[in-house]
Amino acid sequence: MINYLIRKELLQIRRNGFLPKLVVVFPIVIMCVMPWVMNMEVKNIGVCIVDTDRNTESQRLVHRLEASNCFVFKGQQPTYEAALAEVEHGKADVILEIRNGKYLIAANAVNGTKGAMGSAYLSQIVATQTPVPSAKTTPTAETLILYNKHQSYKLFMIPALLAIVMMMLTGFLPTLNIVGEKEAGTIEQINVTPVSKRTFILAKLIPYWGMALFVVTVCLLLAWGIYGITPAGSLLLVYILAMLLAVFFSSFGLVVSNYSDTMQQAILVMWFFVVCIMLLSGLFTPTRSMPTWAYMTTYINPMHYFIDAIRTVFIRGGDFATIAHEVYALLAIGLLMALWAVQSYKKNS
């Protein structure tokens, strides 16, 4: 009988004027726009120069600054205070003061990353220009960057986007599902039929897994077509990981749906959890930098396992052995959640 229930779910999704469009358009929009948006590259930092020495040094500096795509030269100011006013106006981000052959870099650090990166880049430029007298004792260091050779933020973000799209579609749509049936009253009709809890929940989950498969394919094709980015590792592993994530999120959505009385409640609760899961997963910031208590939560955060594993496969080109631990963890959490979804669905009170 499960095939009839699955068919019903699919028909309902198709009949809903909005959902099919959403499933197709959402991944496309996200993949087309977001890689440009989610770009933490530090670019176009406005630099203001205060040169009290007034020699050719600053002239050459300005030329170098304009040559780099990192900085935009925002003009010279006579005093440090005048330059600070520029920063307060939001016209400049960094002040470079040259006084008696010494340099002072003052960066607006309201955005910590931008401030740190900006001042680091600027000091590199200044340092290469001025010969360091003590160079003879220090060894030279060269840097080798692995995997993401071109330092492309897009390559870093595409697996994350895949995760976000999956989370939005396979997480939020099931959340609205059961609570929707509750509000429409049809759930009562199902409850008096001999359909078992397991069958009912499974029939609700399977369409979303199919949807996940479709969405992953669309995302991968777009990443390849638009940005020329393809997974460094095996495609099969990417699919396996994505499906495991879909199992978790669709089950989680149903759990929330089972406990909610109205759609608004369901969405808000889901949104709350999704934001926490996402922020604590290492999607945007490294988990290692977290304090211990926050780091502990990553052990039960499926998104953390997913994002670690998918980046290993997608960017670092890892094989199954390198991500086995994550796969098992995801599988366990996903199954647990699916069981909970079955358990929390009440056929009678």
Partner: peptide, 15 residues
């Protein structure tokens, strides 16, 4: 000479 080999997955952090 010292060589620093980093995981460039996250470009900003690598830098």
């Amino acid at each position: 000479n010292i060589q620093i080999v980093t995981d460039g997955t996250d470009p900003n952090m690598a830098q």
